[in-house]
Each structure stands twice: as C-alpha cells, then as structure tokens.
Nucleic acid binder design. Structure first.
Length: 526
DNA sequence: CGACTTTGACCCGCGC
DNA sequence: GCGCGGGTCAAAGTCG
C-alpha cells in the first residue's frame, strides 16, 4: 500500500519535470548556434525517455489503483459481513444448541466430517448409525484465546494440552532425562495424521527430524519410524512415519505436538495445517464428556500442503483403514487424507491460476459431497487388523461444503458474482473451527507463491492477509474458536522466551495483528 | 568428528 | 500377575 502511495506521489514530480523540459524544448526551438544542436538532441532523447518512463509509471499506477480498490472493496465486504455475523452470533448459538438436541432425546452421533477433499465414496456407510464414530468437536469450545493479557500459566496449560509427548510416560522419563516440561494435562492431546502418496521414505515437510527409533508394529509388516524435531533442542514435536499396509505407496505421517520455535519457511504449511487440525480436534475433546476417543478425518487435497514433496499419481479415491496402532484409540487423531488427488482440470483453484498467476497450484478441494462423510479410518468400527475401536455417541457437525460453495468461490474469483472474500466470509464465519483450517490452507497458499516480490505475488499475499486478518480478528471477538488458538499454539512457547522470536517465521502480519486487532483498520486503510 | 541411523533393551500401559 | 504391544533410550555403527 505504501509503495503505491509513494509511486503516486513520485509521479507528480515527474510530470512537472517533464513539463519543464517541454517548456525548455519549446524555448530551444528558436534558431541557435550549431553546438546547441547537440544539446537539443540530448534533451530530446531525455524527453523521449522521460515520456516513456512517465507512461510506464502511469500504467503501473493504474494497476496499483485497481488493486487498491479491489482490496478495499474486499475489506469492506469482509467487515460488513463480520459485523452482520457478530450481531447474529447470539441468536445463531441459541438456535444451534436447539438443533443439536434432538426432540426424541436420542443422542445423535457426533461426527465431524471435515471433508475438504472431494469424495463421495463414503456415502455407503453414512446411513448406518453404528458406523458413525465419535468426534466430539465442540465448536463452542470453552477454551479461550490466549492473548498477551492471558497469563503464561494459561498458555502453558494450553501448550501442555497439545504438545505433551509422550503422554504419561514422559512424565516419568523426563525425571530421568531432566526435561522439565509441563506434563500435567494428559487429556488434551491430539495427533494429526497425514496420509500422502510418497515414494520417499519420509515426506519433506520442511522440518529437521532425527530418527530415534523404529519398530515393527503389529498388523503392519512395514516398520514404523519415530522421529523427533531437531530444529530446536527440546522441541516436543514427534512424528511417526509408516507405510500403509494395504498400499505401500501411501505414507502415513503422524504428527504430535506443536513446535516451540520459529519454523523454517518451508515448514510453515504443514505446521500450520497440522496445528489447525489438532487444535480443531482438541477444541472438541477438551469440552466433551465422552469425546476423548475422538478421531477425525479431514480430506484435504494433496496439494494443499505446499511444503510437501510428494507426487500424487493416483486420482482414485480409495478408502483405507489406518492400522490400529497408528490411529491409537487412546489418542484423539485427526487424519488429513491427501491421497485422493483431483485432476487439475476439475480443480477450481487451479482455474484461478489464470486470474492470479502468482497463486501456486494450491487447491482447496472442498468436498462436493452433499452428505456426511465418514473418515476412512473409521470404517466399520473395526480396524482392518481386528482391533475394535470403541465409538461414542456423538453429535453431528458437518463441515463438508457443497458444490454450491465451490461455484460461489469460482464465480467470485471470476468476477461474476460477489467478491471472493464475501463468499469465503460467509462460509468461514459459519463455523469457527473451519476458520482455522481455512487460515492454514490460505497461509500455505500464500506461503508458496513462486515469485516473491512480483506484483501478483503481493496481490495474492495481500488477499491472504486480509482474509486471515478478518478470520483471526473474528476469533478474537468471539473468543471461542480454535484458529486463534492454533496461532497461539504455534507461538505459545515462544512467548515464554520472547514475543518477537516467532515473527521471522510468520511472514504474514496477520499473526502479529492477531494480538493487536486495533491495528487492522489503520493498516488496511492506509 | 559431529550428526545421524540402527537396533536391541527397557519401560510402561492395558487387557485378560 | 502376566504377557503383549507401543514408545523410547542409548550404545554401536555409519556417513559426510
């Protein structure tokens, strides 16, 4: 924005200078000595170049003006939508609580079908109530956004919730090792399992990992490898890598914990996505009476996580059961299934790339399925290896987005309909948990822009910033969603050592502005 | 030589 | 109490 203003300002001096030159040129048209002809030519050249320069600057200014207008429009629509939603928020909450309690007092299954992939293959099992597993994903979580005002104790509790690894063992082990971590909260833990097609032994997710163990787990001939993050000493993040028994081309990477250090740029995508997913899961299990045994699957396009190096080569949507060992029944696990890729032609966001050349081939592949989608890992209630996964009766929270949503987004991007931000706002604000996932996905999109610094890249980045700022400022207002917590989760530990530590790893002002919502208007209005 | 991997031993929780 | 299985440790080996 500042660049634009500077350029607009600098264009005026150009004009006046050129005017002066024109005047000089007119004066010089009168007969003059021969040696002055050379001076004339020089000045003519200068004039020509100045004219050309001016033209370029004008064009650029026009472009930037249009960008500015569009951004401002988007911002205004976002703001008005949020205001609307804020006003309606109280009524919505009461109605949703009414809806959730079924009239016949039959406890409904609580399924969170966060289906960001496009799959309808699970419809076959949707109607069987026994097959509906449990994920208590309470969207009106009691958890509160950790703001700078919050005590560090709160944050530690929150951190301990998501970052404790291993759950209870480490408590005893750490006494041996001397790692003083807060292991109090054994209940709030979450794993994020990412299923990808990958030929390499592990996915390149941008982080540094050190292998500390390998085991042959029961039911899967492929050994499971244990890694811990070595980016910073004492980082609690672990990951398990194991190939799927049914299809060895599928790599199941299970992450647990949040990084307590600034992340490499390339690791942002996966970290934010998994943190969002984990946070989403925890927001449910934290408030659920019965939801400790929750498992969820979020089917994301395999291109959403741009930090990954893997090559999807299978367009078919297949369902797999995770080995019981991977989807440990004792831990809430959310599975990001990236194995069902889509042909590029069917991908709306790929189509956007024509309008936004700097957008990477990232796709938010929202499900077009109209139904509740059961995650692959749930299957028929039993893992393929015979271990029963106990389910609890739960409430249905369907986050799957229909084709209408896709069309709206596409049309918005095409300029045929309401603005994209307006559309996204409607969808995002309709569910706080979904906001976190959107924020993560968008961050990964913006993160991976190919050519930093070019105008289109800045445009894309601005868009992401606006959207995410709106998302998180909304979070800050209702204090109940998890997207802000996921941001805090990423930043939480750093806040103990210094608030500025995280900043380099988050290229977006959004993460900073989340803690100072008042700055939003100033920044965007400038 | 340091960082990383391998691998057998060990610890612990859980189910029977 | 016992055995099983998951997860971790740590010494030895490997690699750059």
């Amino acid at each position: 924005m500042e660049v634009l203003l500077m350029k607009m300002q600098t264009s005026d001096p150009n004009k006046s200078e050129i005017g002066r030159k024109l005047q000089q040129n007119a004066d010089l048209n009168s007969p003059s000595p021969c040696h002055e002809d050379l001076v004339d030519r020089k000045e003519e050249d200068e004039l020509e170049s100045a004219k050309a320069e001016m033209g370029e600057v004008k064009e650029e200014n026009e472009r930037l003006k249009k960008m500015l207008e569009k951004i401002q429009e988007n911002y205004k629509s976002l703001q008005s939508s949020f205001n609307e939603i804020l006003q309606q928020g109280a009524t919505k909450k009461s109605t949703s609580s009414l809806v959730s309690s079924s009239p016949d007092n039959v406890p409904e299954p609580e399924l969170v079908s966060l289906s960001l992939g496009r799959s309808s293959s699970m419809e076959s099992i949707k109607d069987d109530p026994e097959l509906k597993p449990s994920l208590t994903l309470r969207l009106d979580s009691n958890s509160r956004l950790s703001t700078p005002g919050n005590s560090s104790e709160d944050q530690q509790k929150e951190d301990g919730a998501a970052e404790t690894w291993p759950p209870s063992k480490i408590q005893k082990r750490t006494t041996r090792n001397g790692d003083g971590e807060d292991q109090q909260n054994h209940v709030k833990r979450a794993r994020v399992s990412v299923r990808t097609r990958c030929d390499a032994p592990t996915m390149n997710d941008g982080c540094q990992w050190r292998k500390y163990g390998q085991k042959i787990s029961k039911g899967n001939p492929c050994p499971r490898a244990y890694y811990r993050c070595t980016v910073a000493p004492g980082c609690p993040v672990r990951k398990q890598v194991q190939r799927c028994a049914e299809d060895t081309s599928i790599l199941i990477t299970t992450y647990e914990g949040n990084h307590n250090h600034p992340l490499p740029f390339s690791a942002m995508a996966i970290a934010s996505t998994t943190a969002a997913a984990a946070s989403m899961l925890l927001s449910g299990s934290s408030t659920s009476q019965q939801g400790l045994n929750s498992t969820a699957t979020a089917k994301l396009s395999n291109q959403v996580l741009n930090g990954f190096n893997f090559n999807p080569h299978d367009n078919s949507t297949r369902q797999f059961y995770l080995p019981n060992s991977t989807s440990s029944p004792s831990l809430p696990t959310i599975t990001l299934d990236l194995t069902s890729s889509q042909p590029p032609s069917s991908n709306y966001f790929n189509r956007f790339s024509s309008n936004f050349p700097s957008f990477p081939s990232t796709s938010l592949n929202f499900s077009s399925s109209e139904s509740n989608i059961l995650p692959a890992v749930w299957g028929n209630g039993y893992s393929r290896y015979g271990a029963q996964v106990p389910y609890y009766q739960t409430r249905t929270v369907d986050l799957s987005l229909g084709k209408e949503f896709q069309d709206q987004i596409y049309q918005s991007f095409s300029g045929n309909n309401q603005s994209l931000t307006e559309t996204l706002t409607k969808v995002i604000t309709s569910d706080p948990s979904f906001r976190s996932v959107i924020a993560a996905a968008i961050s990964s999109m913006v993160c991976s822009s190919a050519k930093p610094g070019d105008p289109a890249d800045q445009k894309a980045e601005k868009f992401g910033q606006n959207l995410m700022q709106a998302i998180i400022s909304q979070d800050g207002k209702d204090q109940s969603s998890c997207s802000s917590r996921y941001c805090n989760g990423l930043a939480s530990s750093t806040s103990q050592t210094g608030s500025s530590l995280l900043q380099p790893s988050f290229p977006f002002p959004i993460f900073n502005s989340a803690f100072k919502p008042d700055s939003d208007d100033k920044e965007l209005n400038n």
